[in-house]
Amino acid sequence: MLIDKDTVKHIAKLARISLDEKKINNLSKDLSSIMEFIEKLNELNTEKTVPLTSIINASLRSRKDEVSDEKIRDQILKNSPEKNEEFFVVPKVIE
């Protein structure tokens, strides 16, 4: 197994996804077979290859440094599962 159960638990924690034992088992199997498939790239010697950074041959445009506050606070808050006047509400972080 390329990705054992402890590794699954570790990356699930990084990705903030909770998993039960059964899911961890299945994912260890699935992710290992995917990583095995990916290992094919090791056949290639890429020591001297420059990695691709952008697929389009154009430099990014710059825009004027202007404030573009469109006064959309209410729109941004509209879909929040829990809000209080002008704030997103989350479970208490500081005791």
Binding site: S18, N79, S80, E82, F88
Partner: peptide
Amino acid sequence: YDGVKYGHRSKGNNLFEMYENTRS
């Protein structure tokens, strides 16, 4: 997708639990 700004939110005893349950 963290259950704060939009979309589905699950319950949790603290912020991390809320994130993890929401995404799970």
